[in-house]
């Protein structure tokens, strides 16, 4: 698959939140205001891009030569957990402003299924190293797009007169559903029309 096709697939067609349901907890939990949604989105994109590369290297240079592929779930989650910790420490050291913006979101990312999800999907699709990296960034950008749109919708919803039982989470889910409906316009046919 060409790189453009991977980008379009992971940002729009197989958007992690709206069609794959990976990373829903932060999507509902951190989408109350746009600023923190943007922070979370970028933090996830960052970690997903690095995690895709690192898990790829671990899978093809450690697990396969040793014949330990059945341990991939344990290995990946440990790699991701230590990676998140490492990224947190490095960012704190190198760029305090970036740490201030992303810092509080980083620990939450370990248990974000989107990160483990992309690592497993890269292996299932047997992507190469660069393809995995592109898939990781694109899936992260798709997450960013969905969570920022959602935060904007929810900020407006706060000003509306929502019926009491629907306030908060239920109306967020329903808006998410309507967004997913709109994203159904992006499908495989679009990809063939665009790239021939």
């Amino acid at each position: 698959m060409s790189y453009i096709a991977i980008v379009i697939t992971f940002v729009f067609i197989n958007n992690f939140i709206l069609t794959q349901f990976l990373g829903l907890c932060p999507f509902i939990g951190v989408s109350k205001n746009t600023e923190s949604a943007i922070g979370m989105g970028f933090a996830v994109t960052f970690v997903m891009a690095i995690a895709s590369v690192v898990t790829w290297l671990v899978y093809y240079y450690v697990l396969i030569p040793l014949g330990l592929t059945y341990l991939q779930t344990i290995t990946f989650i440990l790699v991701i957990a230590s990676l998140v910790q490492l990224v947190e420490m490095i960012v704190q050291k190198i760029s305090p402003p970036l740490y201030k913006a992303l810092g509080i979101f980083l620990p939450l990312i370990t248990t974000n299924c989107a990160v483990l999800g992309i690592a497993l999907i890269n292996v299932t699709n047997s992507y190469g190293l660069l393809e995995s990296f592109v898939a990781g960034i694109s899936a992260g950008l798709g997450f960013l797009l969905a969570i920022v749109l959602m935060a904007n919708i929810r900020e407006r919803l706060d000003l509306e007169d929502v019926p009491k039982p629907l306030q908060g989470v239920p109306v967020a889910f329903i808006s998410g559903g309507l967004m997913a409906l709109a994203f159904m316009a992006f499908d495989k046919a679009l990809l063939t029309n665009l790239l021939g």
């Binding site: 709206l18 349901f21 629907l166 889910f173 329903i174 559903g177 309507l178």
Partner: peptide
């Protein structure tokens, strides 16, 4: 479809 999952979840929670 995926949209239906979010809608059903929203209405059930409500």
């Amino acid at each position: 479809l995926s949209a239906g999952a979010l809608l059903v979840m929203g209405y059930l929670k409500a």
